[in-house]
Lab assay of single mutants.
Amino acid sequence: EKVLKRMREIKNELLQAQNPSELYLSSKTELQGLIGQLDEVSLEKNPCIREARRRAVIEVQTLITYIDL
């Protein structure tokens, strides 16, 4: 939940920025750090946690791809 919240904050900052190119590098670095945090999530045998992590990774990767474009 914390990762998704921060990812959404970054997305809003990028969309509202007057000059978003200044934010791209720092935002991309922070998003890659969020992916690292998601990699540390213990998936164990809980399919709900596994699915939530998968969705979060996809959302963060989508935003990274947007920045790259």
Rank of each mutant, 00 (worst) to 15 (best):
I10T: 00
V41K: 07
E13H: 06
I58G: 10
E51Y: 04
L43N: 12
R55G: 06
L69M: 06
L23W: 04
A17G: 04
S21A: 14
E9V: 04
L69H: 05
G36E: 15
D39C: 06
R54A: 11
E40C: 09
A56L: 07
V41M: 13
N12R: 12
I10K: 00
A52Q: 11
S42I: 10
V41T: 09
L69F: 15
Q61D: 04
E59L: 01
R55Q: 14
N12E: 15
T65W: 05
L34M: 11
Y24S: 00
E40A: 12
T65A: 12
G33Q: 14
T62Y: 04
I35L: 15
L23E: 03
L23M: 06
P47D: 14
A52T: 08
I35A: 06
L25W: 10
L15D: 15
E59A: 04
Y24M: 05
L43R: 13
L43D: 14
E44K: 05
P47K: 10
L15K: 10
E44N: 10
N19C: 08
K28G: 02
L31R: 00
Q16C: 13
R8I: 09
A52K: 13
E13S: 06
D39M: 10
V3H: 01
L43I: 15
L25S: 08
D39R: 10
I35K: 04
R53W: 12
S21R: 09
P20D: 10
R8C: 13
I49Y: 06
K45P: 15
I64C: 03
I64V: 04
S42K: 12
I64S: 04
L38S: 03
E51A: 05
M7V: 03
L43V: 13
Y24V: 06
A52N: 02
V41F: 08
S21Q: 10
E22S: 10
R8N: 11
S21N: 11
E51R: 06
P47G: 10
C48I: 12
R50V: 09
Q32A: 09
E30V: 01
I64T: 04
L34R: 00
T65G: 09
P47H: 08
K11F: 00
I58L: 14
Y24L: 08
R55A: 08
R54V: 05
L34C: 06
V60H: 01
V41Q: 14
S21K: 06
D39E: 13
E9Q: 07
S26Q: 14
A52H: 07
E44R: 04
D39P: 06
